[in-house]
Amino acid sequence: MKNGMNFFKKGKWLFLILIALLLLPNFLKDEPYVLHVCIIVFVYVSLAQAWNLIGGYAGQISFVNHTFFAIGAYTSTMLLIYLNLTPWIGLFVGMAIAGCVAYVLGFQILHLKGHYFAVATIAFAEIVKLLFLNWRGVGAAYGLSLPLKMPSFYYLMWSSKLPYYYIFLLVAIISTILIYTIDKSKAGMYFRSIKQDEDGAKHKGIDTRYYKLLAFVISAWICALVGTLYAQYILYICPRSCMDIMISTKCILIVLFGGLGTVAGPVLGAVILIPLAEYTRIKLGGGGQGWDYIIYGLIILVIVLYQPQGVYSILRRCKKNVQKMLRS
């Protein structure tokens, strides 16, 4: 908690940005599209933070985060459709299920090293996707359309985008604070030491398996939470859209772009890359050429080759230079 407060104390900057974000929708009332992009940015800030925990801090390259996301979305939607249960409860059920799946899966495969773990998560994600595509009980390839209830807080459904904006903003902030808290805590230290040298960490007496599982499960919780809310927002889910491996891949690229294992990295990454993707899609994708993907690829390549610590490190360096200049 104390750490959480620190997060706000860290600078008036953050406070200011927060106020700006809270006020922003007032100026975007007639621009739901921009609001939509903002919401997607928040979704990816949260998802990227979740990935940052398992990938950036604990160093386990997971391609399974979108599965937890989908578990959250499917659980609450199924409960809403069949039991007419409010998504507020479904949200926690979804998180619980995703946590259990993450625990069992993690228990089995977290001891795998590097690429093996990555490929095993890809395989698991594909299995779940194929099963859902063929499971008539959850709509199979038809997907699930959420029943249109009366717009209300109880059903977490609104006809306007504004409430969604604030909810996703809240989730993005919560997940960022959570990562910040972990970053400053002992567990954060342990995660980093596991990432740096797992055997070494083990020798020093860290229960590496426990901590890796912890990171994996927390990461799954965040994803499931976002998944539930996303289903409530988009109102239609199907295995091909919400179990697409591109979701996890995007998270990884966002974290990499922003800065691996930093609190600010995923935020920066999502804020820059998602609008950029939207922009290139509209400006260049309209030609039907696929140029937007090429540009996306080039940006990633340049970042990876010349600035593997991500954009955050550039900003930090700029700040230092400015300080130096001011001093002299």
């Binding site: 090429i294 690829g297 080039l298 990633i300 990876v304 080759l305």
Partner: peptide
């Protein structure tokens, strides 16, 4: 990430 970018 680098090979993924190449792939795109």
């Amino acid at each position: 990430a680098a090979t993924f970018a190449l792939s795109l």
